[in-house]
Design a protein around this nucleic acid. Structure first.
Lengths: 126, 126
DNA sequence: CAGGCTATGTTTCTGATAGGAACCAGCAGG
DNA sequence: CCTGCTGGTTCCTATCAGAAACATAGCCTG
């Protein structure tokens, strides 16, 4: 192998690995980013994120809630108002998430550029 | 909204957002982590990662390759030997990835703990 | 008072995707 | 000739994502 020592690896069935699989998700990262500036409403997230359906947003928020990363505060008003907010635990995720998003912002063009340059051999295509 | 200014947001259809969706993926993060120490063979990744099928690994590697994050070097030997390695661009992802994995390693227990504590209302379950 | 509006969430249906297992290539060795 | 090694692909199915319609529940309008 390469330089992996037993205790170093989260590459197995362990809490760390499961947690990576929890947040390493298309919508999860974006939602957490959307919550990184403070409490946000459901509808605000829909507009802010763009492209996510209500279903996926609710589903993602629920998962984060049950994992203790965000809280859900529903005000008993009409029309309903629901705010989501990072928990202290969830707040510690802001830094990693921001590093990722900053990297994407900085290198997004290079990545898409490489994609254009590679006309994808299409090994078994057609 | 909260504190999002127009230029700040990657929350739209832009290179940054697309790139986040590229790497914010269950296997992608783990594979990149597996490659972070140097060139690794296909079979090594299978064992190292654990739980990934050859199909998903190949698929993930191909996607990373076409996006310019890794290179694939196939040696014309028998039995075949194929090594994957981060490109310079891909290497700049190590820091963000490691921050994420370190967070997961540190907080994995807390996350799973919260999951146990929340017996998930099961809104429409059953 | 009927009907529409609001914001959140759920249901339904369908197309895409992940996952597993079997199969393929190509050569070395018994 | 048959087996094994390694990387990769194909097939099939269970699961998931996405879109759109429906549900709720009170307020506002006509």
């Amino acid at each position: 192998m390469s330089g992996f020592v037993p205790g170093d690896s989260f590459l197995a069935d362990c809490p760390g690995r499961l947690t990576v699989e929890l947040i390493a998700d298309k919508w999860t990262v974006v939602v957490l980013y959307g919550l990184s500036k403070g409490p946000v409403r459901h509808g605000e997230l829909i507009e802010l994120i763009g492209g996510i359906s209500r279903k996926m947003l609710t589903q993602t928020l629920r998962r984060l809630e049950t994992h203790g990363l965000i809280t859900r505060h529903a005000y008993a008003e009409v029309p309903p108002r629901v705010e989501y907010e990072l928990t202290p635990l969830g707040a510690t995720l802001i830094d990693p998430i921001h590093m990722l998003t900053e990297w994407a912002r900085a290198n997004g063009d290079a990545v898409l550029d490489a994609l254009e340059a590679d006309p994808q051999p299409v090994t078994h295509g057609d």
